[in-house]
Design a protein around this nucleic acid. Sequence first.
DNA 1: AGGAAATTTAATCAGCCGCATAATTAATGC
DNA 2: GCATTAATTATGCGGCTGATTAAATTTCCT
Lengths: 234, 234
Amino acid sequence: MGASAGSAKTGRSAKVGRPAKDSREKDAREAILDVAEERFAKHGFHGVTVREVASAAHVNTALIHYYFNSKKELFDAVFMRRAETINRDRLDSMDAYEARLGDRVSVEGAIEAFLHPVLKRLHEGGEGWRNYFALVGLVNSTTAWGGEVMTRYFDPVIHRLIDLIARALPGASKQDLYWSYNFLSGSLTLSLAETGRIDRLSEGVCRSDDIPALEPRMIAYAAAGFRSVCVRSA
Amino acid sequence: MGASAGSAKTGRSAKVGRPAKDSREKDAREAILDVAEERFAKHGFHGVTVREVASAAHVNTALIHYYFNSKKELFDAVFMRRAETINRDRLDSMDAYEARLGDRVSVEGAIEAFLHPVLKRLHEGGEGWRNYFALVGLVNSTTAWGGEVMTRYFDPVIHRLIDLIARALPGASKQDLYWSYNFLSGSLTLSLAETGRIDRLSEGVCRSDDIPALEPRMIAYAAAGFRSVCVRSA
DNA sequence: AGGAAATTTAATCAGCCGCATAATTAATGC
DNA sequence: GCATTAATTATGCGGCTGATTAAATTTCCT
């Protein structure tokens, strides 16, 4: 018994086995990650099946387990793939800003240095980055394990921002700074998710994918917010 | 054949059948909604099984379908149960504020009237309300169908807020107002989710369930943000 | 009292889930 | 050139999922 399929001794069978090197357009692994990224972002971890991912990526389900061992590890791989890139972007951006301004850093400048790398990728990075950020937004507001994952990956970048702002707002209390960051984080998260909510709410006056409209407003809004919260206690 | 279980002709069996109207502590239906609310908020729609809900509510799975027809309709019932209460709370709050201030409304006052009913329930409403708001936060940043659901239920309240703020900031453009609201919405959503993120990030300096610390800061932050975004164009 | 309606359970179904194993084919190293 | 390794598919297993059905028990209405 077993799986001895009475298959192709007759020359050309279905495309089983390792593919010819030049016959492949991309990497199957990358295709899996791309599809998984899109689906996880749209429906969450539990809303996606590995069969669905496999089918959309035109591979067999077993290949997913071959590369990633389990569904959970596939998810982690998706989350990690772009995390380092964007983290380095942001740290570099803030380093450059500080090097340029010395201790004449401003709240606006710090927030812009923090936000711009993300918004730039969101605007110009193509569908992959858009899906990735939607996923980050989803994870960030997921009670169960969302908080931990975000902490592990993004805390260093955030502390860098808070240090910068603290220098621009001497005397600000830690509590005020962290609460303010939390509000900024929520605004950013919702914008990254691009749920189309603002489109409907505004009946077309605003479009959630209009990054050039979003960016200056978010910077102005957050900077004013930080100042208002952090200054009255100083 | 069928299910002819050789059961209790011996007098007192398990508590099967229609319960005495006054003998019930609560309603089985309510128990189901409470459990479902908690689970959906924590794990999302797809992360919960009806068996799990039934078991935690100490009822049979079929009872859930008896009351709610399907898992999806159970979810909708959970979402609807408190929506009307909180909507009326907020509309009343804003009406009262406007009646009191006439056209001397302020941005801070409008935002406080909008936020306070929610934060009060979050603070004093018990576990049920806490779970409910976490669910709202989750739905709000869920790309797939989150936006639509939110639109249907919460748009009237939001338009009421925007009208109030527009009166406090004459000359503000619709676009600026809607973008600003979006930022406020993100801040609120993340705070409602109470993921514990800020607790870890601040290493205990802030606690996500510390509503008395959150409320004045969120009002100050949002009001300053609105003003900053909406004024420079006027 | 006695039938109608409401509430609850046990049992079951068809289908999908994540995952594992073995087979198959191409590339690579000695 | 032959053995090893890498990449891929076919097949299938055990378990769980949402939903259904028929029956059992209880209360309500007249």
